[in-house]
Design a protein around this nucleic acid. Structure first.
Length: 286
DNA sequence: GCCCAGGAGTGTG
DNA sequence: CACACTCATGGG
């Protein structure tokens, strides 16, 4: 099933490759292949037009893709709000095609529990291995992210053999400690309450809770702080402190779209490590 | 080989 | 509240 969508601005490479989600792969023709809700999806940009191919293809496939890419986010409006922070202004144009994604809540939760203290290639490898071992094959060579009950059934010993390290115990406990009803209830909570609820789960602390609130539950005010974002805040704003201090700083500075500011800074900081380029004002650099 | 990674949990001051 | 320590391991 093939169709086109109007999602703009959109940079597929930044959006699907910046490290907020871990399963998308880019092919030679510049098309991206991934899985949304057990559907195999291919995406390619032709100018302003987004061409999507969904297999096997449900009736609501266009809505599926649009929702995943947060097509309703008004990037212009978001950036006008963030532009009140003069430090971000020089980088906004560069990152306007970087959209947050809306992942499945369980996949997001499990993925970010696995993401603790690991780099992105390794995270992608762990997720790929549990998907091949435990996920349903939806097309030759493509496996869905494993359902919660399949992970619980596997047990921590089998998970450990898939190279998850100490995360195997967290994921195993998590898969037993949550269900669809709980996720459904959490999806109705406002950000702060959702965050407190998430932190109760095994393997979920401050940072993972904010990632899941942002990428899984769509709370745009969430501001996950990992080592990269911590460095960015220190460098750009001269601000250091505990997680709770930096979180308050971000809330007051970036407001209800803090999540977008965070992803811009995260991506910028990693680009800077590789290329030396910084798109933001470095007012506090020596 | 060395260093680092989208940290969390636990114990201590 | 803040630190200090441990956890297990692939990738650059």
């Amino acid at each position: 099933m093939k169709f086109s969508l109007d999602v703009w601005p959109l940079d597929l490479g930044m959006t699907l490759g910046c490290g907020q989600t871990f399963r998308w792969r880019v092919g030679d023709g510049g098309y991206w292949t991934g899985i949304i809700d057990d559907q195999l999806v291919r995406l390619a940009a032709r100018g302003r037009e987004l061409v999507a191919e969904v297999m096997p293809g449900r009736r609501d496939a266009p809505e599926l893709v649009a929702r995943y890419l947060r097509a309703d986010d008004d990037i212009g409006k978001i950036q006008r709000v963030l532009a009140k922070d003069e430090i971000l202004v020089p980088g906004l144009e560069r990152f306007k095609g970087l959209r947050l994604v809306k992942m499945d809540e369980w996949e997001c939760l499990a993925s970010y529990v696995l993401a603790t203290y690991a780099n992105i290639p390794r995270i992608a490898g762990m997720i790929e291995r549990i998907s091949i071992a435990l996920g349903e094959q939806i097309s030759p060579g493509f496996h869905a992210f494993p359902r919660r009950d399949r992970v619980a059934q596997a047990g921590s010993q089998k998970l450990k053999k898939l190279g998850l390290g100490y995360r195997a115990d967290y994921l195993s406990e998590l898969s037993e400690g949550i269900d669809g009803a709980r996720i459904s209830r959490m999806s109705k909570l406002p950000y702060e309450q959702l965050r407190e609820d998430l932190i109760e789960l095994p393997g979920v602390g401050d940072k993972v809770a904010d990632c899941v609130a942002l990428f899984g539950f769509g709370k745009l005010e969430a501001f996950p702080i990992d080592v990269w974002v911590e460095r960015a805040i220190a460098r750009l704003y001269g601000k250091k402190g505990s997680y709770s201090e930096l979180r308050r700083f971000a809330a007051s500075r970036f407001g209800k779209f803090a999540g977008y500011a965070q992803e811009y800074m995260y991506h910028n900081e990693r680009l800077r490590a590789r290329t030396g380029a910084c798109m933001f004002l470095e007012r506090h650099s020596r």
